[in-house]
Design a protein around this nucleic acid. Structure first.
Length: 863
RNA sequence: GCCCGUGUAAUCCAACGGUAGAGAUAGGCGACUUAAAAUCGCUCCAGUGCGGGUUCGAAUCCCGCCACGGGCACCA
């Protein structure tokens, strides 16, 4: 008598499976001595512990988990860690608003998020957890800072910096978007002149750019973004001597070949030579102009397509080659921060100069013409900016392109009025922050010794705990007098601690190194441990860090490599940038108010519950303010973690945005239930996974069909998960296809074939739905855990067919099919095709002009 | 303005240059049921954003557009 059907109850099964995994120590990273295997490092971008896990986290960590689990099944020794990017403003703001201690607040959030994460069944080695705000960790962040200081890569200087008026701190250039807004607060940043700490990332600009092409496992788009950000441009520095007095105006240009087309020189209004070059008559106009520009916001100043305003200074410089007098102007289209803050105006060959010259009646002199075809008619309608052949350029006439550039630069060098120069958009990384909840910069200011590094044996410089976090009036550490006062490590005199803390991106620039040796109390990580695991085999995270975190981490790795601390120059071999998780969003077209989905009566025709008008419906990144978020915990409560995992993997390819849809989640749940019933039925039918039976020497047609489905799935899923692109969505579709094949085929095959099919299904399912696969594995009497199995071996012979369907085309159009033995030769196929009804009907008796045969696929008859 | 990506069925997504559909959601029909849900079976729906080109054959390659998303942008 068969036992009754059992039910799939994830809420009951999942915690049980997780307890079992913990007992078995499945997630622990094996020591090299335990397992002889290749290493695989699977890494997710660690979260800020806000206390709430959201769907973006779930997607990120589930993708990485699938990769980690697949690699384990394939016999690799896997490192799959997790940690917390735990310094940062929300903790401090909570302290200001609610009076809670930032450390406590952060600790609570971590505990809460860890518990939420663990419900997902991620195979994370929690023994290697790192927390950046823990003194055990930030001690080493400080140690690394001192390495930079010693290498001359950390320095303090006064500079014009971005100030976030909401967060009350400065920001690095990377942390301000194109609209001039802070990446965190969204506030418009202001420019301030302050003395700050920087890391000399520009020293690595060439390496950061030139080594980008090696990152073949990175999305093209991220590499392009980094290249744009670094913004290298090669050109020359040219000096125009002042007409009166000593000195010269230096300009940077990428087109030194156009030097003879210069009709004026422009200085940025902030340029130090403006005053000196202003004639008495022009003084009022220049002063008025500078005041006007100073009053313009940064954004307006930089906006494109605005008239190029400027005034002549009255002074002149001499052309470095011809000696002619060149008038000097100041204009708002020249930026003080880029190049030398001065530009040579060549209206004929630069569109900005062209616009400026036309607006102010300056001469336009053509010195470059196309190498082929006619020169543009004069007066020019627009600037000719392409490279070409030089004319009206004295000794340089006739030279072309690069050759012309080199000749002009060589002549400038010989004359002592210039040299080749490369400039970058990239600026040094501003790491000072005027906030409390960050890693203290470990230096001491002494009146006689200057800036003194804190000796390594005194690390960490711990944050004081009794601090006034009122949220106003500068850095809280400045008010911690007792903490600040400290003897100078050099001379012993009274000295003061640095009160700036570090940008949290410092903490996250090396956490992936710490994971390899998380318990090390003597150093941040041992060289051996790092070399064993780095570079990371697969990194997964959001594209919002395309520049920020990923650029900083590359910089860190290169510096550490040059100091012999790590053995590789690039930290992340492969990078997957996952798309956003979007929720369905309802908005009232008239009030622009977001309406919660719960308030929408009929999702088919959504109307505003208050006004009754039809609502706009679209998908957008989940957020509280739009009422479009879905809580991962609620989904797990209702369907279980496996359904949530499967859905999020299946709904869209990992790189693309994903539209959350409750109906699809339901569908995913049904699929897992189908698998449950399939296995339950097999179980009650007496199938046991533990007894591997030899396959019969001859198989029935049904058995061969089932084996073809099984091995077809192995092949397809291997391609999806191990190929260049990770395609979890199609891998899940293959699992569905396989389970459909089992559903119809399992009952009619002998136990050996059924056993192979079911065991394969469960092992292939294990990385995606780890709880369910393991539970069913156990129920069916499988040995050990499904997660300790070997990835199924592909039997190519199972994929073969006796007969295949060959498509008959006439002139590329499908006109019929032929069912032929799989090994039919091309000649035979051609003969069969020509003899077919299709040929009779479509060729009307004439012989085809051409016949294309693709054996096993198609025959194309071309009349 | 420049660069990158994406456009396929009502919807989400597949398709080494070779039969446009793997998979799913929603819809329709049927079976089971007193009925419904669940389940099972069947089924409707696109010629691939637009216009050219290459090819025996194009969703796929090339050229020119359009729409959406993203990055950079008076960067000399």
């Amino acid at each position: 008598m068969a036992s009754p059907e059992s039910r799939y109850v994830p809420a009951d099964l999942e915690p049980r499976r997780q307890r079992r995994w913990a007992e078995l120590g499945l997630d622990r990273t094996p020591e090299p001595s335990e397992v002889r295997a290749e290493n695989f490092y699977a890494l997710s971008m660690f979260p800020y512990p806000s206390g709430n896990l959201h769907m973006g986290h779930v997607r990120n960590y589930v993708i990485t988990d699938v990769i980690a689990r697949v690699q384990r099944l394939r016999g690799r020794r896997v490192l799959h860690p997790m940690g917390w990017d735990a310094f940062g403003l929300p903790a401090e703001n909570a302290a200001i608003e609610r009076g809670v201690d930032p450390a406590e607040w952060t600790g609570r959030n971590i505990a809460q998020m860890r518990a939420q994460l663990q419900r997902l069944g991620l195979s994370i080695d929690w023994e290697r957890e790192v927390t950046t705000c823990s003194p055990d960790y930030y001690r080493w962040t400080q140690w690394l800072f001192l390495q930079f200081l010693e290498a001359g890569l950390a320095y303090r200087r006064e500079a014009t910096v971005n100030w976030d008026p909401v967060d009350q701190t400065v920001l690095a250039n990377e942390q301000v978007d194109a609209e001039g807004r802070s990446w965190r607060s969204g506030a418009k940043v202001e420019k301030r002149r302050l003395r700050q700490w920087f890391l000399r990332i520009t020293a690595m600009a060439d390496a950061l750019l030139d080594e980008l092409p090696q990152l073949e496992g990175w999305p093209e788009r991220v590499r392009t973004m980094q290249a744009n950000w670094i913004g290298r441009s090669r050109g020359a520095l040219l000096r125009f001597p002042l007409a009166e007095g000593d000195g010269s105006v230096q300009v940077f240009t990428t087109r030194p070949d156009t030097i003879h087309g210069v009709s004026y020189v422009v200085l940025a209004p902030e340029h130090p030579l403006v005053e000196q070059l202003t004639s008495p008559g022009q003084q009022p106009a220049v002063e008025a102009f500078r005041a006007e520009v100073a009053a313009t916001s940064e954004q307006d100043r930089v906006a494109d397509d605005r008239p190029k305003r400027g005034v002549a200074l009255g002074g002149t410089v001499r052309h470095p080659f011809s000696g002619e007098a060149v008038p000097v102007w100041t204009a708002d289209y020249v930026l003080p921060e880029y190049g030398t803050g001065a530009v040579m105006g060549v209206p004929a060959h630069d569109s900005r100069d062209f616009a400026f010259a036309n607006a102010h009646g300056l001469p336009i002199r053509t010195v470059v013409v196309p190498t082929e075809g006619a020169a543009p008619a004069e007066p020019l309608a627009e600037a000719f900016t392409a490279p070409g052949r030089l004319v009206n350029s004295g000794p340089f006439d006739g030279l072309v392109g690069e050759e012309a550039i080199h000749a002009v630069v060589a002549a400038a060098v010989a004359a002592g009025c210039g040299e080749a120069r490369t400039t970058y958009r990239l600026r040094d990384w501003l790491i000072s922050r005027q906030r409390y909840w960050g890693c203290p910069i470990p230096v001491i200011h002494c009146d006689s010794c200057g800036v003194v590094p804190v000796p390594v044996d005194q690390l960490p410089v711990e944050l004081p705990t009794d601090v006034d976090l009122s949220g106003s009036g500068g850095s809280p550490l400045e008010r911690a007098e007792a903490w600040r006062r400290v003897p100078c490590p050099c001379c012993g005199a009274d000295a003061r601690r640095e009160t700036d803390t570090m940008d949290t991106f410092m903490c996250s620039s090396w956490y992936y190194l710490r994971y390899t040796d998380a318990g090390n109390a003597a150093e941040p990580f041992s060289r051996a441990a790092v070399d064993r695991w780095l570079p990371v085999d697969q990194y997964v995270g959001g594209v919002e860090h395309a520049i920020l975190h990923l650029l900083y981490s590359r910089f860190f790795t290169k510096v550490l490599a040059e100091r012999g601390l790590v053995g590789c120059r690039e930290p992340f071999r492969r990078l997957l940038t996952q798309g956003m998780v979007q929720g369905i969003t309802y908005r009232s077209p008239s009030t622009r108010r977001y309406v919660p989905p719960a308030a929408v009566a009929d999702p088919g025709a959504p109307t505003d519950p208050d006004t009754g008008e039809a609502l706009e419906v679209f998908y957008e990144k989940m957020s509280k303010s739009k009422h479009n978020g879905v809580d991962p915990g609620a989904v797990i409560d209702r369907y279980g973690a496996d359904t949530a995992r499967m859905f999020i993997l299946f709904k869209a390819p990992p790189e693309k945005d994903l539209e959350w849809d409750d109906a699809d989640v339901e569908g995913q749940y049904r699929f897992l239930q189908r698998i449950w019933r399939l296995c339950d039925g097999a179980n009650r039918g007496g199938l046991r996974l533990a007894d591997p039976l030899p396959l019969p020497s001859t198989l029935t047609d049904g058995e061969r069909d089932l084996r073809r489905a099984v091995h077809g799935a192995i092949q397809a899923i291997e391609e999806d998960l191990l190929g260049d692109e990770l395609q979890c969505n199609t891998a899940v579709a293959e699992l569905m296809k396989l389970s459909n094949a089992l559903g119809s085929g399992l009952a009619t095959v002998r136990p050996a074939v059924a056993r192979e099919a079911l065991a394969t299904l469960l092992v292939l399912l294990a990385p995606f739905a780890p709880h369910l696969a393991d539970e069913l594995w156990e129920q069916l009497g499988g040995e050990g855990s499904v997660h300790r199995q070997r990835w199924p071996e592909l039997d190519r012979s199972a994929l073969t067919r006796d007969t295949v369907t060959v498509v008959l085309q006439v002139k590329g159009k499908v006109r019929g099919q032929l069912e032929v033995p799989a090994d039919t030769s091309g000649d035979e196929l051609e003969r069969l095709a020509l003899a077919s009804d299709v040929a009779q009907r479509w060729l009307e008796g004439t012989a085809p002009r051409r016949v294309i045969v693709v054996p096993g696929k198609l025959v194309n008859l071309v009349p």
